[in-house]
Amino acid sequence: MDWWVLLAIQIAIIVLAPFLAAILLGLDRIITARMQNRVGPPVLQVLYDFFKLIGKKPMLLNRPQVIFAVLYLMFVAFAFVLFVLGLDLIIIFFAAAAGSVFLAVGAFTVRSPYSHMGANRELLQIAAYEPVFLLALLLIGIQAGSFNVADLYAVGDLMILLPLVFVALIAVLVIKLQKSPYDVATAHQEIVSGPYIEYSGPYLAITKLGHWYEFALMLGVITLFFNSDNIVVSIIVKIALIAVAMLVVQVIDNVTARLTKERMLKFTATFGIIVIAANYAIIVVLQNVGVI
């Protein structure tokens, strides 16, 4: 492939990915609605909302609020760019994590009780899922022998060796997608969307775009789990993986009530870490036995 074709594809992915993620979220809304005996909004409703928000008059509480919203977007988008360029997973992880922290700080900048509570909960969430996410990435990197995403795409057997890591990543995805039972930071019945509460109009659109990038990045990590030399098979299985992950998350969302933040912290940290440790132990045992 010519370098410019590659570049064009990469740019296209970077620009289109958040919107594809948004459409996926639209699908998610429809499926959820069907599970709840509702019709649900159109698939593109998420995008309609987004463009409507952009057109609104900017209202704000103070300037840092905007700075941190933009920073959030920029850092998660940058993490996604790095991912598409196939660079180091750890840097990608830290850029994305920084983005999340900026979102929380942005929520702290306004004098609003719900925003502060949401930010505190958001930080607690970060403390809950970040170790799991980081360990998952570390295990992927160690298993593949490289942390570069480009190299990881050449490794075929991650799903077979790291099924439990995939499970742990779904636990992270539940939090990242703000789904029950661990949507504590944005719980609208308690703290009215928490960190997002004081954003409106175009600035809310910015945070939404950032959320989509984060979502796209998570899905990107999920696609790492299967690679095949046959590009068609590869793409089909990747899509299937995403679909499975999303469906699992959706079903979990629909059969659970929101739990409290303590439970979120305890469950995510212990479950995620134990699952990943188990996976690591299995690999070590298998290696010593000589199976792999």
Partner: peptide
């Protein structure tokens, strides 16, 4: 109130 939308809808 506890974020169990599905049950609420049903």
């Amino acid at each position: 109130a506890m974020g169990y939308e599905n049950l609420f809808m049903q």
